[in-house]
């Protein structure tokens, strides 16, 4: 049984100003197997974040079902860890309390929370910053805190919404390597939203290429490139060319497709 099953999912937003419906997602079908690292790749506005938010339980599909471990998703829950585009840390809590926020809500004892948080702080390489506040750390460091917070819940699934989008190139590459290391060491199923082809090809075991308006899955490409991935290798470029072709043909035909209200 697949860990995540998305079947016939559509999402329609009502645009009251234009009196038209926008089809954000149109009949999406994806299965994500256990320990798979799926990258959702597509242009902005293709509904990839919307799809991720549905798995997270923040949004509901207009049609179709999203199941995780055979259970239909109705609300957010700690079985699915989310790493957001912005770190979304509590500015009033020190780093270790942010990492252990899950335990704080569950009413864990301070010493236990502290010790558990420490393991994950070490894992993401923030040892020594336990008592700092988010405002005292850089964007990249805060994103690490966000990752540690999600990992601490030991979730079935980790959902990442362009988590490295706001980081500079160098920091992003460093974070990508580290994410792959953590994923390899601890296993787990990851769905990672990105608009960067290189990022998708560096990280994923699979890439789902999406098209925009209406958001559809163009192709799901399995990647069996060796790790660490060499972004200058011929195989890498071959796949990249293929994806660029997919996106390009998409752009040629794409216009704002809307459906008029009856």
């Amino acid at each position: 049984m697949a860990t995540i099953e998305i079947s016939h999912v559509s999402k329609i937003f009502k645009d009251s100003k234009r009196k038209a419906d926008i089809i954000a997602l149109d009949d999406i079908n994806i299965e994500v197997a256990k320990n798979q690292f799926l990258c959702l790749l597509g242009p902005s506005g293709c509904g990839k974040s919307t799809l991720l938010n549905m798995i997270a339980g923040f949004e509901k599909p207009s049609a179709g079902t999203v199941m995780v471990d055979g259970q239909p998703i109705t609300a957010p829950g700690s079985d699915r860890g989310v790493v957001f585009q912005q770190a979304n840390l509590m500015p009033w809590l020190p780093i270790w309390e942010n990492v252990g926020f899950h335990l704080l809500l569950r009413g864990g004892q301070k010493a236990v929370r502290r010790a558990t948080a420490q393991r994950y702080i070490d894992m993401v390489g923030l040892t020594g910053f336990e008592n700092h506040y988010p405002s005292e750390l850089s964007g990249g460091m805060n994103q690490r805190v966000g990752i540690a917070r999600a990992l601490l819940m030991n979730p079935q699934v980790i959902l990442m919404d362009e988590p490295f989008g706001a980081l500079d190139e160098q920091t992003r590459m460093e974070m990508q390597n580290e994410l792959v290391r953590i994923w390899q060491e601890h296993q787990g199923t990851i769905v990672f939203v990105t608009h960067g082809i290189d990022e998708a090809l560096t990280l994923g075991t699979h890439v789902a290429v999406m098209s925009a308006r209406p958001g559809r899955i163009r192709e799901i490409i399995p990647l069996d490139l060796p790790r660490p991935r060499d972004i200058t290798s011929p195989q890498f470029n071959e796949i990249k060319r293929h994806i660029l072709d997919l996106l390009r043909s998409e752009r040629a035909k794409s216009s704002l497709e809307t459906v008029d209200h009856p």
Binding site: A75, P76, V82, F84, M90, F101, L105, R106
Partner: peptide, 19 residues
């Protein structure tokens, strides 16, 4: 977004309010 983050780590309404 902070409330979303709280819901993500498993917070119910009362906990989101309090924490």
């Amino acid at each position: 977004n902070l409330i979303r983050a709280g819901a993500m780590v498993g917070g119910g309404n009362r906990q989101l309010l309090r924490f």
